[in-house]
């Protein structure tokens, strides 16, 4: 027993250091469980309140630009409502059956980083407003990311600019799928991998979201093809994408609730489990 105490007394500094290092590194790699804890919730509320006050001042300076983006989006939405569409069917009087699939919640960005390897966004809507982890986040110019953690009034979003983000995207013209990832550095540049060789890619083509992940409606802009090359090993294209969202000036976002997500995911899971 005495030996143990002598050991602790002698190496107390190193032991303290070892404990701190293990705690810190475990927390770094198990972000999920710890963020969900009571501790995270209360501290997130605290830090978010401070950041909100800071952002309020910053936002005021950007009002002009934000307004413009809103106006542009409104214009585009008007183009989507049924009234402004030409109905090409010859047969008249047929009833149209529609079902609401996506609903949107507007939120302000109160904290954002985009110059690190792993970036995060905090928005001022939480589970009181119906936000849930795993929901998609977009802005007037395109796809932003995915909701990660949710507290009462705030949520944290993992944007595309994160080492663990893999968005499924497709080429708007040929509809070929690929995964969009970000490899750090320039916050306007991302890569799209695994695009099949058959896709006839052209510079300037739009890369858009698709419904494979059940988070986004299809056709939302991710970015434009800036360069592409054929990977000789996998015989698929590696595409450089110029992101349509400028994370450096992000102020307003919309969180998407896909009302049919559960149904899609459950169906896909059960058909994957089916014995052959």
């Amino acid at each position: 027993m005495g030996n143990i105490f002598r050991f602790i007394a002698r190496y107390h500094l190193f032991l303290l250091f070892a404990v701190f290092q293990s705690v810190a590194l475990v927390l770094t790699f198990s972000n999920r469980s710890y963020h969900r804890s009571w501790f995270w919730n209360t501290t997130q509320e605290g830090t978010a309140t401070i950041l909100e006050a800071y952002t309020a001042a910053e936002e005021y300076v950007h009002l002009r630009k934000t307004n413009r983006a809103l106006a542009e989006e409104n214009a585009r939405l008007r183009g989507l409502v049924e009234d402004s569409k030409y109905i090409g069917t010859v047969k008249r009087g047929g009833r149209k059956d529609t079902l609401q699939q996506y609903t949107y919640t507007a939120a302000h960005v109160i904290n954002i980083s985009f110059h690190k390897r792993n970036n995060y966004i905090t928005i001022d809507r939480g589970f009181l407003h119906g936000i849930k982890p795993g929901q998609g986040v977009i802005c007037p110019t395109g796809v932003v990311g995915v909701v990660n953690q949710v507290s009462r009034h705030y949520s944290s979003v993992i944007p595309l600019l994160h080492s663990r983000t893999r968005l499924s995207g497709s080429m708007s013209k040929t509809k070929h799928f690929g995964s969009v990832i970000w490899q750090g550095g320039n916050h306007r540049r991302a890569q799209m991998l695994d695009v099949p060789r058959q896709a006839n890619i052209q510079l300037g083509d739009w890369v858009v979201s698709d419904t494979r992940s059940a988070m986004f409606p299809s056709g939302l802009r991710i970015g434009k093809v800036a360069a592409f090359s054929l990977d000789p090993e996998s015989q698929s294209y590696v595409v450089d994408v110029r992101l349509s969202v400028d994370f450096a000036s992000l102020q307003m976002v919309y969180v998407i609730d896909n009302l049919l997500k559960k149904e899609q995911v459950r169906l896909e899971e059960s058909s994957a489990q089916e014995p052959e």
């Binding site: 705690v23 810190a24 475990v26 927390l27 770094t28 972000n31 710890y34 792993n118």
Partner: peptide
């Protein structure tokens, strides 16, 4: 910064 314990480490 939402970085878990990165800075502490």
């Amino acid at each position: 910064e939402h970085s878990g314990g990165l800075q502490a480490s």
